[in-house]
């Protein structure tokens, strides 16, 4: 039974892929996400699971799903494009930070130090994918008599507890998708990958030639967004 599962379920295979990658030193991993736009139905489950996983307040979004409608009746179509952070190999958001509060980790994930970010938002302007959003301090229960406990619960970004308090980081910071680094380091797939109802979302170590993502990005229909910017994104789309 388990053999069948391992052969047939992409999720199980990806899970094994990341466990294997975690055995290697950090700088030898190359985390890559692949999104099959032909399989994406635009259910926004990934967006919602990301909001839940990272307890994102209003106005902060790591992974919206962009919709495009094209053609004329009766030949019309719709394409959906989830947009996480591209975790660029040459991230334009990093060099502009005036206080070195954002950097590319050895495993390629672009991280933010919430304790050091001054909230100047220069990095937001520098990102060609609008992947960074500003936590302005809004709450869902704003304007209601009582703040709900769920809003105060900590998230676990970057492997640390971040309870919600007024004026305290990550409030006032720029925030972005980090491929659920805190889950990855525990051997779990990013929340958006596990939640995708049609397995349109793949994740793994591109440095491992046997991994599922290494196979997928070698196909001729794998593209990356705004290649002309020289950002070298680590998110691929199958079109």
């Amino acid at each position: 039974m388990s053999n069948i599962l391992e052969k047939e379920s992409a999720l199980v295979r990806m899970q094994a892929d990341i466990k294997k990658a975690l055995q290697k030193p950090e700088d030898q991993r190359r985390w890559v996400m692949v999104i099959d736009t032909r399989k994406c139905v635009g259910c926004h489950a990934c967006t919602v699971s990301c909001v839940a996983e990272n307890k994102l307040p209003p106005g902060v979004v790591y992974r919206p799903v962009l919709e495009h409608e094209f053609g004329t009746f009766p030949n019309v179509g719709k394409r959906f494009m989830p947009r996480p952070c591209m975790q660029c190999d040459n991230p334009p958001c990093v060099p502009v930070c005036p206080v070195n509060a954002t950097w590319k980790r050895p495993d390629g994930i672009v991280a933010i130090d919430y304790e050091e970010c001054i909230g100047c938002r220069y990095c937001i302007t520098a990102c060609p994918y609008s992947a960074r959003t500003f936590d302005m301090g809004h709450t869902y229960s704003q304007g209601t008599p009582q703040q709900m406990q769920y809003e105060l619960e900590p998230n676990f970004e970057y492997g640390q507890e971040w309870p919600r308090e007024e004026g305290v980081s990550p409030e006032g910071n720029v925030r972005k998708c980090h491929f659920c680094l805190h889950r990855l380091n525990e051997g779990e797939l990013p929340a958006c990958v596990t939640t995708c109802i049609g397995t349109a979302n793949y994740f793994g170590d591109a440095n491992d030639p046997d991994s599922l993502v290494a196979e997928l990005i070698a196909s001729p229909n794998a593209i990356r967004l705004k290649e002309e910017m020289g950002t070298n994104p680590k998110v691929y789309y199958l079109v």
């Binding site: 060099p95 502009v96 930070c97 005036p98 206080v99 070195n100 509060a101 050091e116 970010c117 001054i118 909230g119 100047c120 938002r121 220069y122 500003f134 936590d135 302005m136 980081s169 409030e171 006032g172 910071n173 720029v174």
Partner: peptide, 24 residues
Amino acid sequence: DLGHPERAWELIFRTNFGSMMGWM
């Protein structure tokens, strides 16, 4: 305008001179 005005001192003590804003 800063999200964390109380950290403005970092602009001097943690300057990234690769950033134009760091120079400012």
